[in-house]
Each structure stands twice: as structure tokens, then as C-alpha cells.
């Protein structure tokens, strides 16, 4: 972290008082204006600092995710509904889940997260998920117990 300016150090002296004084109306949920991104035009990003710590405005660009669900029965429906909110990999990387488990997941997306999935489409989506690569073969994976051995009392 960069060194503070003397001005900021001086400001630190009246810290607590200052904070209490700066009451800005009724708080609201969302902060307002879109932040200025650190520009590529040579204008330095804005920053604030005090007592040896400086924070600098930051903007990032997230990588795009163009991966879609593999071709299959009603894959169009699955792509349209599921990838609106999350990567296809979230589903594709799951262990083998039963139809009941997949239905519970789709139901949670609709009822809890309010995904605009039509009730009439749920069956087809569940059917695709159960049969997609990595899932076919049907039975849920995994045994009931780790291969962890019995452990006698420690000798240490």
C-alpha cells in the first residue's frame, strides 16, 4: 500500500467526528452513479487514502462464457432457460444425480431464484439433464461410505 499524503494524515486526527458528521439523508439500498472506470486514456484512476493505505478505483472485464449445453433432445430449451443465469458447466460438472434430484434443482431455480421457466417446460428440462453427457447411465454415483479406514488411537 502506498504512503499517505500529509493532508490525509492530518485528516485522520478528526476521524471519528468526521464520520459521524457526514450523515447523508436516508440510506437507500443501491449506490448510485455508475463508477468511473480507470481509464485507458492515460487519466489516472481516482483513489482515496489515509494512514498509509490507499484504495484505487478499479474496473474489470469478466471473461465471456460461450459454452452451451451439448446437442440433445430439447437442448434449445435448456440453453434458453439455464444459461440465462449461469454457465452450462454448473450443470455439466455435477455428479450423476437422479431425476428426482434434478427436478428438485429445477424447482429451486423456479421457486426460489424466480427463474422464468415455464411450468410446462420443467419435464423436458429434467429429461435433458438426466440424459446429458456425464449423467447417462442413470444411477446416482457414489457409495455410502468413504474408503476411509478405521483409525486406532494415536501413537504420537
Amino acid at each position: 500500500m502506498r504512503a499517505p499524503s500529509t493532508g490525509l494524515l492530518a485528516g485522520g486526527v478528526i476521524a471519528l467526528t468526521a464520520i459521524v458528521l457526514v450523515l447523508v439523508g436516508a440510506p437507500h439500498d443501491r449506490p448510485s452513479p455508475p463508477p468511473r472506470a480507470p481509464s485507458a486514456t492515460g487519466v489516472p484512476a481516482s483513489s482515496v487514502g489515509a494512514r498509509g493505505v490507499r484504495l484505487t478505483s478499479t474496473a474489470i472485464e469478466l471473461p465471456a462464457d460461450e459454452a452451451i449445453f451439448p446437442e440433445g433432445p430439447r437442448s434449445d430449451l435448456v440453453n434458453a432457460n439455464c444459461t440465462a443465469c449461469h454457465s452450462a458447466s454448473m450443470a455439466l460438472d455435477q455428479p450423476r444425480l437422479s431425476a428426482e434430484q434434478w427436478r428438485a434443482t429445477v424447482t429451486k431455480m423456479r421457486e426460489v431464484y424466480k427463474a422464468p421457466v415455464r411450468a410446462a417446460d420443467v419435464d423436458a428440462i429434467v429429461q435433458y439433464l438426466v440424459g446429458m453427457p456425464g449423467q447417462s447411465g442413470g444411477a446416482p454415483s457414489g457409495s455410502a461410505q468413504d474408503p476411509a479406514p478405521n483409525v486406532p488411537p494415536s501413537r504420537s
Partner: peptide, 18 residues
Amino acid sequence: GGHVTRPLSIGLAQLLRL
């Protein structure tokens, strides 16, 4: 805010002085 006597809006420059 909420169940407090003095709702606050704290900037980062202020937070750094605490």
C-alpha cells in the same frame, strides 16, 4: 441503518481514518 439512532453513509476515505 435500521435499528440505530444515527443512520450513516460512510465513504472509504472516512473508513480509512478509523
